[in-house]
Design a protein around this nucleic acid. Structure first.
Lengths: 202, 202
DNA sequence: TCAAATACTAAACAACTGTTCAGCAAATAT
DNA sequence: ATATTTGCTGAACAGTTGTTTAGTATTTGA
């Protein structure tokens, strides 16, 4: 048992990568074991069950997001941004893993979604306090729609990239998306019927 | 061979329902055959291959959307709406099937996505002609973001329903979503920094 | 030093997958 | 009426899945 904890950690790391790439149902224990150069039985030995391995992979990767302590870390805007950056800097795997959990449905998926909606609600509250929120009839639902739009771009990332002809992380694509998104959030898109053409109130 | 065509059609219909519910990988030929009260070999007999069955199910259900004749039927706004209504009135199956194809990735998924973006672009063009489009720097990207938001709500439907405590088709939930969405598209959400609180230009 | 716990494997398990094959019965064509 | 095609089935195939079991080293604790 030279490097016991290390082997376990390596297995978990490889599992997370493969789950992120091919989903949970699409990743067999055998394929994980093969890539790790290890017997399939070792995975069972360390984690007991594929289901348990999945749960541990989720806690490991999405930890706080899934633990239900939503509000705790979101209060501070700088912290939230810092969190996102730390999450993203690890490459594409965490985001793809996030995507798979969201798509898998069930308990964890819902927690992720609810946590994301909470984040949006906090953002709207902060903007309101700063006097930068437009009048709206239903702040909760607005937060939900903003969340759906954001998560949608995660779920549809590969389609977006093909459609825009480059990786989302590229400066060109990223800036186009951010610019348009900011415009939409600032000015809206449509002018109410019955009014003549006119600029938004900026 | 009493009702040959009828049997084939029934099998296809049941397959579509089960694919819509459990996805393509998650639906075995045996489970389809069982629910149809028929032998698994009959599915092979009629369709040749699971892959072929999937393709036929897709053409059958999403036909024009996937055929690449995007622009053809979208020109007219009333036609577009009419299409959507016809598609929706068949219950939840078509929408769930749409969702599964979009999630499955690959060729069909991309075509569906591109077709949806095209629809949004046409909509923006029509609004512009009617003088109801706000100034924007990148109409294409705006159309793409609107599409992502719309498709996101399809992909995340079950999460949205749990979060809002009722089916999307219910009057309560549907009207909240539509109201907030319309507000966002009309007025935007945020007021630019450096301005004091102020209503949108409506 | 000796015993016990741990890390690990090879082989096999039962269940499931898509697909094939031989054959039967019923409808159609000649 | 005979021959042929068609609809359909049961059984089996080869491959994959998660998991079990028996066993072998290797490391740790007393």
């Amino acid at each position: 048992m030279r490097s016991a904890e290390t082997t376990r950690e390596q297995l978990l790391k490889i599992a997370v990568e493969m789950f992120a790439e091919n989903g949970f149902a699409g990743t067999s224990l055998r394929s994980i074991a093969k890539r790790a150069g290890v017997s399939p039985a070792l995975l069972i030995h360390h984690f007991g069950t594929k289901e348990a391995l999945i749960k541990e992979a989720i806690s490991e990767t999405l930890g706080a997001w899934v633990a239900g302590e939503k509000a705790a870390m979101l209060d501070d805007e700088s912290k939230r941004l810092q969190n996102w950056r730390a999450f993203m800097e690890k490459g594409t795997t965490p985001l793809n893993f996030f995507r798979q959990v969201l798509l898998a449905g069930g308990e964890y998926s819902q927690r992720l979604f609810d946590a994301a909606v909470s984040e949006s609600e906090v953002l709207l509250d902060q903007m309101k306090q700063a006097g930068r929120l437009r009048d709206m009839s239903d702040k909760q639902t607005t937060a939900l729609i903003m969340t759906v739009s954001g998560l949608g771009s995660v779920l549809l990332m590969s389609q977006i990239e093909k459609s825009m002809g480059g990786p989302i992380s590229s400066d060109h694509v990223a800036s186009r998306l951010m610019n348009s998104n900011n415009e939409m959030l600032r000015d809206g898109v449509f002018i109410p019927a019955g009014k003549t053409k006119k600029k938004a109130g900026n």
